[in-house]
Write a protein that binds this DNA or RNA. Structure first.
Length: 522
RNA sequence: CUCCCCGUAGUUCAACGGAUAGAACGACUCCCUUCUAAGGAGUAGAUCGAAGUUCGAUUCUUCGCGGGGAGACCA
């Protein structure tokens, strides 16, 4: 819809200039508004208001005018009201395309389909998944959905660091907890280590990885590829190959008995490879062997300092650094009783993802997965840059008020109406839909493609949860104001049923992308 | 010491450089003989400070103040 309106306005603007169109938040500002006059004013050396007036006149003079009202407003905004036919036509489009509405593959958004590798979670198999892993897990899962919906080919990947120092430590920790070797400060603690007694490091890794997979499954987070550092890189000699590749290019230096690439060590003076080299080999694999156009890595803020080195590293591999996008998620702080509780994986002090899902679940619900939706929505509401404060007690208390239920309840209401209705969507006349709440609902419904397109561009996934709340609000409002079934007017009833059907479609498409359950009853 | 992120209603968070800064929860008023009140209508309530750029700054720049995170031959 935005693109469509922009095109219309562009005709009236004439001059080539970059401007914005956005859906208005207030009724006074029309359905949509633009800042085109502000952008054009310096070019024409006129005041924004004068330019706005001119554009207003041009729009009004157009033959195929799609607006019922155009208004230039001080200091230079132009507000647009869509003709009802335009909205009605779009509503028909929803009813026709059904679950394909919002799918950008077939639209004019002009996105070039890319082969994308999205790597997320990738927690070391040295302990259970924590709730912080949940944050990047939910985010990555939904981002993948959004990118796929935009027509990209997405591989969801989990990189398993199943070799190296931390695995060695894990093995020693198990022995130390059992009293077989002396204790060291850096060892892992926690009950789960005790349960692993008599297991070798390798066995323990396998067991822990299994539990990680189980946690992700119950959280509804999907991965396509489980990439083992040990099997897919070390055993295949990929580190050596990558090192040779860099040496051939003359980029590797020897200093203090170690091999360096820039300011990063590739091979330690004891002859062992570093994580950096393994990571380079991994990205060599992503870009040069598997030929992804774009790799998106989601990392925790505790690794952000490493991003710069990684970018330089892949540049050394001959890959343009823009092809690697590193998204940093800020850490989740755990708060209890107003005080921060330090989480430490090593010390075994953390809240696992499993615990979170269990605690946040609504007690009234019989469904075991109830917490899944609440936790997912909670994390997805926040931008990745927020330093979230998470109070488990508060979360438990508030979980019943989680906005996810607000959205799901709207869906339940939709289903109830349709269940009771004698629905024959052949006789409806959308022109009958002109009350305030009906128009507002329509305006929300048609936003879906815009919201999805923007998110596929800027990765701001939290926009989707906001949209879900706004859409639900528009529907609840409509539900309250207008009766759909059995109020006497059969024609209007059919028209409203069409509107409700369209709402069902949009909610379903949105829930699918968010990974939220489509509850039939609440 | 250097670098990165953050600072917005009582609380948790939104706001491509745009209009009267939005939601949710909490507080306070109202609304269930009608498709589930897990709902609706309404009230009160906020940009850390100081300069600068701009027609316009929560947003950009600089400097403070406060919080979080980095700065290994760990991963």
């Amino acid at each position: 819809m935005l693109e469509f309106i922009k095109k219309e306005i562009k005709k009236a603007v004439g001059t080539e200039v970059d401007f914005n169109v956005s859906a208005s938040e207030k009724e006074d500002f029309g359905h949509y508004s633009t800042n085109a006059a502000f952008k054009l004013a310096p070019v024409l050396k006129k005041s924004p208001m004068a330019v706005a007036k001119e554009i207003e006149l041009n729009v009004k003079g157009q033959k195929s005018n799609v607006f019922s009202k155009v208004e230039a407003v001080a200091p230079g905004f132009i507000n647009f009201w869509l003709k009802p036919e335009i909205l009605q036509k779009e509503l028909k489009e929803i009813l026709k395309k059904k679950n394909k509405y919002g799918n950008l593959r077939s639209t004019t958004y002009g996105l070039r389909a890319q082969k994308i590798n999205l790597e997320f979670v990738s927690a070391n198999p040295t302990g259970p998944l924590t709730m912080a892993n949940g944050r990047s897990g939910f985010y990555g899962d939904v981002l993948a959905n959004v990118l796929e919906n935009a027509g990209h080919k997405v591989t969801r990947e989990y990189y398993i660091n199943d070799t190296g120092n931390q695995i060695k430590l894990l093995g020693e920790s198990i022995l130390a907890v059992a009293g077989k070797i002396p204790w060291k400060e850096e060892y892992y603690q926690g009950d789960y280590i005790k349960k692993l007694k008599d297991k070798s490091a390798k066995q323990a890794t396998t067991i822990l990885l299994k539990s990680i997979k189980a946690s992700l499954k119950s959280a509804g987070i999907k991965h396509d590829v489980w990439f083992s550092e040990e099997k897919n890189l070390h055993k295949k000699g990929e580190l050596k190959k990558t090192l040779q590749f860099l040496e051939k290019k003359g980029l590797v230096e020897k200093k203090d008995g170690a091999l360096w690439l820039g300011d990063g060590v590739l091979i330690k003076s004891d002859g062992n490879p570093t994580y950096f080299l393994a990571d380079l080999a991994y990205h060599y694999d992503k870009f040069l062997k598997r030929k992804f156009n774009l790799a998106i890595d989601i990392w925790g803020a505790d690794h952000h300092g490493y991003a710069q080195r990684m970018k330089k590293g892949i540049e050394a591999l001959g890959v343009k650094p823009e092809r690697l996008k590193i998204l940093i998620t800020q850490l989740v702080r755990l708060v209890s009783g107003g005080k921060e509780v330090k989480m430490s994986k090593r010390k075994g002090e953390f809240i696992t993802l499993d615990e979170l899902l269990k605690e946040v679940g609504a007690p009234s619900s019989a469904k075991a997965t109830a917490g899944k939706d609440a936790a997912r929505f909670f994390f997805l509401m926040h931008s990745l840059d927020t330093h979230m404060d998470f109070d488990l007690d508060l979360a438990k208390e508030r979980s019943q008020k989680n906005p996810v239920y607000y959205a799901q309840y709207a869906y339940v209401r939709v289903l109830n109406i349709l269940k009771r209705a004698n629905l024959r969507l052949t006789t409806y006349d959308l022109r009958l839909l002109k009350s305030d709440s009906e128009v507002k609902l329509m305006l929300e419904l048609v936003k879906l493609p815009d919201v999805l397109a923007q998110t596929a561009e800027d990765y701001q996934v939290h926009r989707l949860t906001r949209y879900a709340t706004e859409l639900a609000k528009a529907f609840h409002n409509f539900y309250e104001k207008e009766r759909v079934i059995g109020f006497g007017d059969k024609n209007l009833e059919q028209s409203r049923l069409a509107l409700v059907s369209a709402t069902k479609i949009i909610l379903e498409n949105l829930f699918d992308i968010l990974g939220i359950s489509k509850l039939k009853k609440m």
